[in-house]
Design a protein around this nucleic acid. Structure first.
Length: 570
RNA sequence: GACUUGGUAGCUCAGCAGGUAGAGCAUCACACUUUUAAUGUGGGGGUCCUGGGUUCGAGCCCCAGCCAGGUCACCA
């Protein structure tokens, strides 16, 4: 069912055809300038500069005053006002192009191309005086109308559900949205350039993996028909990149779309972009410097400054970032020195700090819980937390000064983890032992413990040079750069539950699985929108429900037997 | 997954004690040759998310469901 406005637009479309105007022309429209170029470079003393512009875009507002009109044209970069005059658009006797096509048949949202010259109106606004108008594409649905005066937006299109489901509309009417995604791409460009200048190689590794390794997370699972094996969408690309270091590259990196079958909220999307880099002959101390440089440079490239507002906090990416070990951080934030404590003592500390724990948690996990609950949120300015317990870092080399710890750092910004890095574990014997510890944790009920990857161990046995690796959550980093607090705002198409299908099952669909016509009618009326939905019902419950309806409506049919209902469902 | 808030015109939102559904913008018609949230006059547009219940009567109250937001849990 079309709304009134949609019907009117379809009628206009037909009228355009009748006038011999193709609302969806094939021919290219020559664009020789953008709205922003005109606005930035217009010179009142040099009108010749833009005396012959040709520009395409959407009509975003219209002010019609009889024989003269103003409207705003929006292209990829911004908006510019158009001035149209009836007798200039239509120099001859026939005024159809202005009176009928422009005033009546064109709407907000339509794409048009105009040719003319730039000038400044009496009100001082740089505009285009239109001499010629071409219809480029008719829009059949009305756009949300956002008005603005003195920088204040009115009737902004801000329903998150509609914005995320129809990002195309969001991008058209909310100019800030476009800006976020431009910054996202610039940030990725900047990082890529930095790595390439260092001589490191961008690579592509498998998204479909038979062992989902490199991180602790529940994977998405799929099936490969030809091989008849399960395959997992990658949760990380770490183990593949390290294989490449074994193979002899001295630096590799990948922007990796990762998939994790876990909850969704304002900082989690089922698919997200990770960046991992591995550099041979380096350690985590070098990587801290390198990460600092990368982030500072990226901020300068994207924002032109190393300061950004996120919520109420001004975050500064000025180097050097603060560095503190995890144990010192816990001491600083809780006053408790956990150095050298055993599992029993750590449990006591958690109890004392009122941190919820469960028996499956090992020593490392307990320390992580303390840090997460009492420390993490306090690091607003970029801070490297270093030297994590060995139990929670199965791919990381032991600390040179303390075998209970690892050479690992995480970068905290705005109270959240942004990057994670190691001096990589390249001792194959130790690596095998660490995987085995993970298996034990899995046995204790930790369903996220890592799965052992024999081929990766084989690779290490061939020898991996000393290596440092770093991973960064690109989405979260972009959130910081753009001051966003929701991951959905930095993903063009965030995951949403599919829209309810409008196409609903008919009584014939139910009759096809053996439901008698009378009952099929009841099912349709009861809003069973699909056969699948019916089949999800418990037979006994469904029978009861339907017989209840029979009784209530005094239906002239025998009561349903359980066998009948079971027959439909199975 | 738990708790919580919301779903009314194309968009943003009102609505009351339960008694024929409202505004602004948009849209349609008319007027208007430098307006800019253009203006003036008049008109049209609704599955009040879905289904059930209570009631003489439900957008409003009750139950179930769907979708979204927020908070928490898990994770990056």
């Amino acid at each position: 069912m079309l709304s009134e406005q949609e019907q009117i637009r379809r009628n206009s479309l037909q009228e355009l055809y009748k006038l011999g105007i193709n609302p969806y022309p094939q021919a290219a429209f020559d664009v020789n300038v953008t709205t922003v170029q005109i606005k930035e470079q217009f010179d009142d003393n040099d009108l010749a500069k833009f005396d012959s512009v040709s520009i395409g875009g959407r009509i975003m507002s219209r002010r019609i005053m009889g024989a003269a009109s103003f409207c705003e044209l929006q292209d990829a970069h911004g908006r510019i006002q158009l001035y149209l005059n009836r007798d200039e658009i239509c120099p001859g006797e026939d005024k159809t192009m202005y009176n009928t096509v422009f005033k009546r048949l064109l709407d907000i949202g339509d794409f048009i191309g105009v040719k003319g010259f730039a000038f400044r109106t009496q009100m001082g606004e740089i505009s285009i005086h239109v001499k010629e108008l071409t219809v480029l594409s008719k829009s059949l649905r009305p756009l949300p109308i956002v008005k603005e005066k003195d920088g204040v937006k009115y009737d902004e299109f801000n329903d998150p559900e509609l914005r995320y489901r129809m990002r195309y509309v969001d991008l058209v009417v909310n100019d800030k949205v476009k800006d976020i995604f431009i910054k996202r791409t610039r940030a990725i460009d900047s990082i890529r350039r930095f790595f390439n200048e260092s001589g490191y190689l961008e690579v592509e590794t498998p998204v479909l993996q038979s062992i989902p390794g490199g991180a602790s997370a529940r994977p998405f699972i799929t099936h490969h028909n030809a091989l008849d094996i399960p395959l997992y969408l990658r949760i990380a690309d770490e183990l593949y990149l390290k294989r490449l270091i074994v193979g002899g590259f001295d630096g590799v990196y990948e922007f990796s779309r990762n998939f994790r079958n876990e909850g969704m909220d304002r900082s989690h999307n089922p698919e997200f972009t990770g960046l991992e880099i591995y550099v041979a002959y380096k350690d985590y101390l070098w990587m801290m410097d390198y990460t600092e440089e990368m982030i500072h440079r990226c901020a300068m490239d994207v924002l032109g400054t190393d300061k950004v507002m996120v919520g109420d906090h001004e975050i500064s990416f000025k180097r050097p970032f603060k560095r503190i070990s995890m144990i010192d951080s816990i001491k600083e934030n809780t006053g408790i020195d956990i150095n050298g404590m055993n599992e029993e003592q750590l449990r006591e500390v958690c109890k004392q700090l009122e941190i919820e724990i469960d028996p499956s948690m090992g020593k490392g996990k307990l320390i992580d819980e303390i840090f997460g609950a009492k420390c993490e949120g306090n690091y607003i300015q970029p801070t490297f937390i270093t030297d994590y317990p060995v139990e929670m870092s199965p791919l990381c080399k032991r600390h040179r000064d303390n075998p209970e710890l690892t050479e690992r750092f995480e970068l905290m910004i705005n109270g959240k983890e942004v990057a994670n890095a190691y001096t990589e574990l390249n001792d194959p014997i130790d690596q095998r032992a660490r995987f085995e510890e993970q298996m034990m944790l899995a046995g204790r009920g930790d369903d996220e413990a890592m799965v052992i990857d024999q081929d990766f161990l084989r690779a290490l046995e061939y020898g991996m040079p000393p290596t440092s690796g770093m991973g960064i959550g690109i989405d979260r980093f972009v959130m910081l750069l753009t001051g966003q607090t929701q991951i959905q705002e930095v993903l063009l198409f965030p995951q949403m539950r599919p829209e309810k299908v409008k196409k609903v099952a008919t009584k014939e669909d139910f009759m096809a699985i053996g439901v008698p016509e009378v009952w099929a009618e009841v099912l349709v009326k009861q809003n069973f929108t699909s056969v699948e939905m019916l089949k999800e019902q418990k037979p006994a419950g469904l029978r009861e429900k339907l017989n209840g309806i029979r009784k209530k409506n005094k239906m002239d049919v025998p009561a349903l037997q359980l066998e009948e209902v079971e027959a439909w469902i199975n």
